[in-house]
């Protein structure tokens, strides 16, 4: 287990199918109207694929992620992991937010371990905790409380905590959004390394076009009000990718055009 965890490739990912998903919310005022957050969203992600979703604020990205996580239910449509329909949240789909949301009352070790405790397998799998602490490079910080950690370190703990239950899909809701530019680039490599070691299916939501191009196999571009998948871009550049390569830059300006931020 340790070997596959750290060096070899364990194919842990599972495919994800989103079919014609719609989600509406009751409006905040008394008009009885309903706001459509997602309108007929459909896409598929292959097992072990790394997919990013980019789009302007309030385009329903986070709503979509909550539906996939099982924290919310679609108004219509269907979501499947492999062949199973998603009903409610479980450890199959890990979730990492922009805020690491570490439990402040637990040390780093116990935060990472909390998934095992929640599943009731803490005793059998306790040895994995140290593997994961090593995996995210936090040896020496195991017994520290979260408020002593920097933003990047806290996010590593959050990643380790989400991965220790061996999810089939890892959902990342702007996980690096609050980090400074350098830490962010470093963490991008970190996430890629974790992904390549496990081949967990990754779905990353981001505002950062460079991040999406640097990391993903495919990019889904969403448009707001109501949220729809507007365009899908496949990338077949080799990893590690060069952020200043002409192809990289061309793709970047293409996406900017699509999002209506290009030079007019």
């Amino acid at each position: 287990m340790v070997a596959t965890l750290v060096s070899g490739v364990a194919k842990e990912g599972s495919s994800l199918d989103v079919t014609n998903v719609t989600k509406d919310f009751a409006a905040q005022d008394r008009t009885n109207q309903r706001t459509l957050a997602l309108d007929g969203v459909s896409f598929s992600i292959a097992a072990g694929e790394f997919v990013s979703i980019i789009g302007p604020s309030a385009c329903g990205k986070s709503t979509l992620l909550r539906l996939i996580a099982g924290l919310d239910f679609p108004s219509s449509g269907e979501l499947r992991i492999g062949t199973e329909v998603i009903i409610g949240a479980n450890a199959e789909r890990g979730l990492v937010f922009q805020d690491p949301n570490l439990f402040p009352w637990l040390t780093v070790r116990r935060n990472i371990r909390s998934g095992l405790v929640a599943l009731g397998v803490a005793r059998e799998k306790n040895h994995e905790v140290d593997d994961f602490i090593r995996l995210v490079g936090l040896e020496g910080f195991a017994d520290v409380y979260p408020h002593h950690l920097s933003g990047g370190m806290a996010q590593r703990v959050a990643l380790a905590r989400a991965l220790i239950t061996h999810p089939k899909v890892l959902l990342l809701d702007e996980p690096l959004g609050a980090l400074d530019a350098f830490t962010r680039m470093q963490m991008q490599d970190e996430v890629l390394r974790l992904w390549q070691a496990r081949l967990t299916t990754m779905l990353l939501i981001t505002h950062d076009i460079d991040e999406a191009i640097y990391m993903s196999d495919r990019i889904l571009i969403m448009t707001p009000r109501p949220g729809r998948i507007d365009r899908v871009i496949s990338l077949d550049m080799e990893r590690p990718r060069d952020r200043s390569h002409p192809d990289f830059l061309r793709l970047r300006s293409e996406i900017l055009q699509l999002l209506d931020f290009g030079r007019r």
Binding site: G70, N101, A118, L119
Partner: peptide, 8 residues
């Protein structure tokens, strides 16, 4: 939410 996605 985090705890739920950890299987709690």
């Amino acid at each position: 939410d985090v705890a739920r996605t950890l299987g709690a």
